[in-house]
Structure formats: structure tokens, C-alpha cells
Design a protein around this nucleic acid. Structure first.
Lengths: 342, 342
DNA sequence: GGATGGATACGAAACCATTCAAAGATATGC
DNA sequence: GCATATCTTTGAATGGTTTCGTATCCATCC
């Protein structure tokens, strides 16, 4: 005959010990004799006791939950249609599950929303994707003093934990690849190019590399939305205004996707008329026609790394500041969207 | 001078009322005079009091959290690389946020995992994506007696809340479209075709429509993985074994993506050599070249609807069983991947 | 003036776990 | 055999909220 709810108290009674002892057994506090512990464990098993997380949470102020915060598109409040996020979350989720943690996915609109989210939810930590230096998100997360890891941010505060890729090297790799193929008129298709953003460093890498060949041209730098629509729209402008360009470095695969489309509509052939490179190496790049040459990152690993960093903080195992920024490598994947300049 | 933690007790003291009164004000229980309520509210505001969710959760057994359960790929434990999921979750997240709920995203591997997840987390509800009739996931969710909504399931138990699209009609629409274009040798590229699955009904729709023209051919039904790889691999087989086919209905956009790729490699042209249709209408179909003809569903709305259904249950507002299955419409989007048979 | 009743405010229990100090039990050493 | 040290175990406090039943207040009416 099971009681309506099997609590620690119930287990204690059945095992003929105090509540405290049961708690000690569960949490492996070690001060319980093996004999007693065994008995308690068997009762726990018998009644399938599973601690009440809410009570535990209240007492210990730990929730075994952490937030994953991504910003949402403005008016419609939708998560951004970039498979990058899904791949990232896949990595995060897998790793977190291994630690008995669950993730709360939250699209955030404003810093107030973030603050309320963090404060109310008793989160044990938060992973913030793509916050920028001056963004209020960063301040909020810092002030609320919960363990945080920033993905794809370039924040100057060295005490913050950050995971990113070597964006600059990636940009440089794409540029070098095109330069080696003989291209000299290379356009850059960036997302919003704010200082210290992912796009900023990709741009820097490109710029340095192109400059080395003396062919960097500021007017060929286009900013657009990091979306397929953005790429599509940019293509329109670009090919009309700058007929001389022979290659385009897209700072995101998804803009490359849109770019392809518009180019195709206009009757351009890739890579014959124009060489294109992408960035990120999300799964669909393998299926683009022609296969996209792209700077690949291990997105899933990025998520895993962020979770690891979060746990180091949660376990109160602070790292020396010089190790708190982890930069993962990038790999240039040569597809068929780039060709030697004839 | 703020106390370390501003609790309801603290507010009560500052407002010169009892804890109970503060609680009543917060929860709009209405037995507080407007004068007192106003005073309490002002103190709450002054100290930026935000209730402690853990305590509230313990007391009320509500967590303002619900789970979104998707199954994971088997060995690597990764979320499936289909943008469909992300779009779905986008809808769910947006709607849930509006209700002050947060979503816990969980990749599930086994029914034990699901059970532990539901029991421990004090979830107020759970949305289960793509569970099949005989799946242990369904049993677990049913037994644990928490409000649940099934997305993309065909479960016979009429008491369960289910959201899906009219898969059969969608399949029929795709088939009819091709038939109208003159195609008679139409292959079907399905995902795992288990009874009462989404694929099953898409297949049924196709079958009936094709049969009406007396051209349904069982041997042209191919099962594959619902992934780009699956589509790619299937294309290989199909075009070699069945050179007579003139059109292919893919039961998922992502398989169509893989199919395109392989076709392209083999030198086939779409739609000249083969007409292709997809299913779901995820964002990238607009950017496929040629643009994919596909049976579109409003994925985001599907998520929103599921959340609504969940809330009806949470608010203990059970619906008559005949309204518990919501079937959303599908729309045939004519792209450029289908053409009249010459 | 006292009884009546509705509106308002409150005290205390309950939710379920963890934790700390202290008590109880057992073992050790002389 | 006794004092002391070491393990085990426990009672009680604690965390922050909701809720139920009761107490208080004040106005109204006879």
C-alpha cells in the first residue's frame, strides 16, 4: 500500500531511521554505516523513491537546470532560422543530460526579460549565445552573479568564460583560399558588423589576408541580415553594383544559401561566374549545389565545451583567467563553389 | 539597505501586514482591501520583490515549466538535424513565454529516461514530438498522469490530446499535383513506414490518389532515413533500379534535399528529368534550386497549438474528447521542381 | 446599545528536503 | 573498568511560499 506521495519521511519510517540518515545516504555524506545505508537504499528502491526536486531546490538553492539564452527576431519573437542554433543546442543538450542537468531554452527580447528569467528560475547557470560587448545581456548576467558562459562573444572582461572559434583565422582561411585561386576582387558579405562581434573578426581576417595581396577594397564590404533573405537581398545589389567581383566570402552559410538562389535566378553560375564561400559548415552545406566551400566549425563541440565550462563554475572550481576563453579551431572545407579564376 | 534576500516575509514587515496578506495580494485572491493591496504592491515594487519559484513550486506543485521531448539519434545521442524541429520549438517557445512558462528541452533515448524526467522535474506538462502508437513514450506519459500533448502522433486513444496536420490530404495533394502534370510513374520516398505514423498517412494519401489513376505501384515505395543522407542514398538506388519513374514524392523536405544532390551528381536535371516534391515546407525549400514544390505546414503554429492544448489541461479545463485531436491544414506550394510530363 | 454580518487580516500548518550541533553508541587505550 | 576518542544517528531548525480556518474590525440595523 503506497502512500499518496512517497517522501523522505516515509522512507525513513520504513527503514527505521531518521530523515537525516536517509538524506545522508542519498547524498553520500559518508557518515552512515554501510549496514544502515544498505537497508535505506533497499527501501528507497522498493518504494521507487525519487526526491522532490522542488524541496531540494528550495533548501539548497540548486535547480539542476540551466538556461540557454538566444536572442529572438524582433517583431515576431521567433528563434532565428539558422540551423547553427539547433546544432549548438544539440551539443549542449547531450552534454547536460550526461550530468543530470536539464536545459531551459529561452528566447530573449530584452534585458529585463533576461533578468527576470535568471532570478526567478533559480538557474544554476546560463549559457548566453551571441551577446555583444555593450549588450545589456552581458551586464545582467554579470550582475546576477550566476555562473555564465558566453558563446560567440568577444567580451573584454577576462574573468568571463567564453567559447568561440577562431573567427579571424577562419576569415583569413577563406580569403587565402580565394587568393590562391587567383581572385583579387573579393566581396565580403557580413552580418551586422559591430565592433568585437563574430562578424568583426571574420572581417578582420579577410581584410588582413586580402591586404597582403593589396586587394582589400572597403567598398566591397556589404552588411546584411544573417539570414537566407539577407543573402538573397545582398546578392541583388552586389552583382549589379560591382560587376567586377569574382568571389564572395559570406560570413555565414545561411547567407550563402540566399546568395546562391539569387545568383541562380539571375543566370549566374557558381563557381564559373562567381566563387562563393560560406562560414560555419552546417549540415546543409554538403547538399548545396554546388557543394559550398565553407569554413567549418564543430558546432556541437562548441556546445559541449560551453557546458563543461559551466560545470567548472558550478562545481566552484574557478579556472585561472587566462584559460577562460576557449577558442576552437576552424577547418576550411573545400567544396565546389570556388574555382580558379580564369 | 536591502536584506540578503528579499522574501515575502520581508515585504510583509515593510508593508505592515501579514505574510498571508502579501500572498493574497500577489495572487489576486481578492480578499484584501484596495488600500492595503496598493500599499503592499508599492512595497513589492520598491524592493523589486520576485517570488521564489522553488518555494512556490514546493507548495503548489506547479513549476511553470514544461518539457518538450524529442527523440534523439541512437548512437551519438544527438537531436535530429531537421530544421522542422527548430521551427516547431520556435513556436512552442514563443507561446510558452507569453504564459510565463519556460520550456525544458529534452532529448530522450529510452522510456526510463522519460519517466525519470517527468517525475523528477515536477513538470506541469509535456509535449511529446513524434511518438508512435506502440511506443513506450506514450505509455509513460499516460501513466505519469501529467498533462501531455502529442505532436505528429496517430494514437488511437481518443482521450489524448494530439496535434498534427492532415498528412493524408497532404500526400494526396502532392500526388494529385503530379498526376495533373501528367506523371504516372511516381515513386514515393518515405521515412520509416510504421503503421499509424505520419509517413503512413502521407503514403495512404498518395496511394489513394495514384490508385484513382490506376498507377499506384507498390514497388516504387522506398523507405529510408528521414535525413538528407537518407534521401541521398535512396536516390542512388531509385534512379538505377527504376529508370521509368518520372516523379518522386519525398515525404520530407530534408530527404528531398539529399535527393536533389544525388540527382545533380548523376547529371539529372530537375524538373526536366524528374519532378520532385517535398513535405513540410521548411524555410530552406524556398532556396533550393530549383525551388522545391512542397506540401507546406505551418510548423510554428503547430507548436503554438500544442501549447494551447497543454494550457487547457493545466487550467483543468478538459475538452470534450472529440475536440482533442487538432488537425492543421496543409498547403501545396508549387515551386519549380515539378513540371508537366512531356 | 447590542446583536448581526460581511469584509478584511492574520496565525500557523503544510510542502519536502538539507544541515548542524549534539546525543548516543561503539571502540580504544591504559 | 573507566575515561576518552571515534563513529553513527538524530532532533530540530531552516528555506519561502500558499492556504485554511479563525479572529478582528466596522458599519448597519433593530
Amino acid at each position: 500500500m503506497l502512500p499518496k506521495e512517497v517522501t523522505i519521511k516515509y522512507i525513513a519510517e520504513k527503514a527505521n531511521v531518521s530523515i537525516a540518515t536517509v538524506s545522508n545516504v542519498i547524498n553520500d555524506k559518508g557518515r552512515v554505516s554501510e549496514k544502515t545505508a544498505e537497508r535505506v537504499r533497499s527501501v528507497i528502491h522498493q518504494y521507487r523513491y525519487q526526491g522532490n526536486l522542488a524541496a531540494k531546490n528550495l533548501r539548497t538553492k540548486k535547480s539542476y537546470l540551466f538556461g540557454v539564452v538566444v536572442s529572438v527576431t524582433q517583431p515576431e519573437r521567433k528563434l532565428k532560422d539558422n540551423p547553427f542554433y539547433w546544432e549548438l543546442i544539440s551539443g549542449i543538450e547531450a552534454k547536460a543530460s550526461g550530468y543530470e542537468f536539464s536545459i531551459v531554452l529561452k528566447g530573449i527580447d530584452s534585458s529585463e526579460e533576461l533578468l527576470a528569467f535568471i532570478n526567478q528560475r533559480n538557474l544554476d547557470g546560463v549559457i548566453i549565445v551571441g551577446a555583444e560587448e555593450n549588450s545589456s545581456f552581458v551586464k545582467v548576467a554579470e550582475e546576477s552573479k550566476i555562473p555564465a558562459v558566453y558563446i560567440d562573444s568577444y567580451l573584454e572582461d577576462v574573468s568571463l568564460y567564453q567559447v568561440r572559434i577562431d573567427d579571424k583565422l577562419g576569415g583569413a582561411a577563406a580569403a587565402r583560399h580565394l587568393l590562391e585561386l587567383g581572385h583579387r576582387k573579393v566581396a565580403l558579405l557580413s552580418g551586422k558588423l559591430t565592433y568585437n562581434s563574430v562578424n568583426y573578426y571574420r572581417w578582420e581576417g579577410c581584410k588582413e589576408e586580402l591586404s597582403a595581396y593589396d586587394c582589400y577594397d572597403e567598398s566591397l564590404l556589404i552588411e546584411t541580415d544573417t539570414s537566407a533573405e539577407g543573402g538573397y537581398a545582398a546578392a541583388e545589389d552586389m552583382i549589379e553594383k560591382f560587376p567586377e567581383i569574382t568571389a564572395v566570402i559570406c560570413f555565414s552559410d545561411i547567407t550563402a544559401l540566399g546568395f546562391y538562389k539569387r545568383l541562380n535566378e539571375k543566370g549566374y553560375e557558381i563557381p564559373k561566374d562567381l566563387s562563393i564561400t560560406g562560414f560555419d559548415g552546417v549540415y546543409f552545406t554538403n547538399y548545396m549545389i554546388p557543394k559550398l566551400t565553407t569554413v567549418k566549425q564543430d558546432v556541437s563541440k562548441k556546445g559541449v565545451t560551453a557546458v563543461n565550462l559551466l560545470f567548472e563554475q558550478i562545481k566552484n572550481n574557478p579556472w585561472p583567467v587566462e584559460n577562460r576563453r576557449i577558442s576552437l579551431p576552424v577547418f576550411l572545407i573545400k567544396g565546389e563553389s570556388t574555382a580558379p579564376l580564369l
